[in-house]
Design a protein around this nucleic acid. Structure first.
Lengths: 254, 254
DNA sequence: GACCTGATATTGTCATGACAACTGGCCAAA
DNA sequence: TTTGGCCAGTTGTCATGACAATATCAGGTC
């Protein structure tokens, strides 16, 4: 019995590519394929059409098709093997495969998110904050502390520091929109973020805020985020209720 | 004062590319650039030569140079901006930027790793294991449980299940080499892994094994790993001492 | 039957060329 | 002085073509 006894599917889709629109062709293709996988149209283990044939059928060049496929490989949904072809990964868990999202989206899954703003103040940078943000120690920063809730149940305590040019953000924005949305609306686009994920016991204050027992286990995440110019725009220390939140990561070996 | 007042560096390297060797050209180039960044030769904020010029100087086509640069962008060390160029990210933390490695390597940093093998047995798959591995419930699996130590200090308790064809792995191998090395030596190459990272309190047994207080906070990680044919080859539930171990993740926005 | 050999299929790498889209600065006009 | 438009520089996208590396499979030979 061979390893891939699954047959190649015809994939009768991709008839309408918008060639003059602003959306890249490779992106249009990759989205269709991903959708076909997640919807079950391309079941686990099935083989994809080979790159050349797929390109011909869609009227696209091989590099374009190849890039589209690569996007999905990077997400961990497809596996390519030289001499063999491209297959959908086995593992029926082909859902919820987004790389660790920036939190906003995750609570949106059938939950109503809300925010309690505890602190919003200007604060001189201490040594650690200065190092993480790449600013001088003692220079002013915007310091904020929030409790994030889903369906009125507290999920996380989030403490953030931002460079001084963000001083002036209104409390109203943060309660309504979440930090990253506010930054985006001010013209900042995040590009790179470095995260450390760990665990520790909760303090008494955190236990009260999160409505959990004293000395519970907490899931913690430190993050420094950089915008598209490479400047640090945010440093945060967050802690989560582990019974309500966890991180999902998909690794793809080179 | 402009945002990028840094000057473009000449980068007088890349003289010796091995064109006939087995190592891809784009990989050779990306390694040189990454090395130059990590060594400080390309300081934070400095601009890279533009793709066309760099290609000409190295005798390479633009796609090849572009791919080399893209590799480093994906690691979060470089940032590209259309119309501007490619810059090294600000943020002096340009060290230890490897995506969440597969554990073996992490303990190797100045520590002596060792392993206590607690369990190594054949065990019929329960419902959860069967689902994760994609095998039938009740079919035989290899079940193993280990304590991982660094410098003789326990760091993690790791419990794994593998499909039946791995039954026959010797205890000696696991003590000496770590699970992933053993699998590699049996011809398995990992491609995709899905991980869930969370936290919880330790059980009494875990507290004893890890030499920590009862009811401490633990960092937990569940993982299912797939080989290059997309078949699940390992399912594991691990827990770590949070004072000795944490996860590092670098996110890059599309 | 076991083993080698070659043909075939498929992805991996690389080159060349072209145009589009975005950014920044220069310069002229209001 | 300010505004607007033009221009050059750089990355983003896409097409075409070629060869290399690797896995499968059929067939022949020992």
């Amino acid at each position: 019995m061979s390893v891939q006894d699954e047959k190649t599917l015809p994939m009768g889709m991709f008839m309408d590519l918008e060639r003059s629109g602003p959306i890249p062709l490779y992106f249009q293709v990759s989205q269709r394929i991903e959708k076909a996988i997640l919807s079950g149209e391309l079941p686990a283990g099935s083989r994809l059409e080979n790159e050349v044939a797929l390109g011909q059928r869609l009227g696209l060049s091989r590099p374009t098709v190849r890039r589209a496929i690569q996007e999905i490989v990077d997400k961990g949904l497809l596996v390519r093997r030289r001499g063999i072809g491209t297959q959908v990964v086995h593992g029926q868990v082909t859902r919820k495969v987004e790389l660790t999202s920036l939190y906003d989206d995750l609570t949106n899954t059938h939950k109503v998110p809300s925010t309690h703003l505890l602190t919003l103040e200007s604060q001189p940078a201490d040594a650690k904050t200065a190092e993480r943000l790449g600013v001088d120690e003692g220079s002013p920063t915007l310091h904020l502390r929030r409790v994030r809730l889903a369906d009125d149940v507290p999920v996380a305590v989030m403490e953030n520091w931002l460079p001084e040019d963000f001083i002036g953000i209104e409390p109203h924005d943060l309660v309504e929109h979440g930090l990253y949305q506010v930054l985006r609306s001010r013209g900042v686009t995040m590009r790179v973020a470095r995260q450390h994920i760990g665990a520790r016991k909760s303090t008494n204050e955190e236990s009260a805020l999160l409505e959990i027992e004293k000395n519970s286990a907490l899931l913690t995440m430190d993050r420094t985020a950089f915008d598209n110019s490479g400047r640090a725009v945010e440093f945060g220390q967050h802690c989560y209720r582990p019974d309500l939140y966890s991180f999902e990561v998909t690794l793809v070996e080179k």
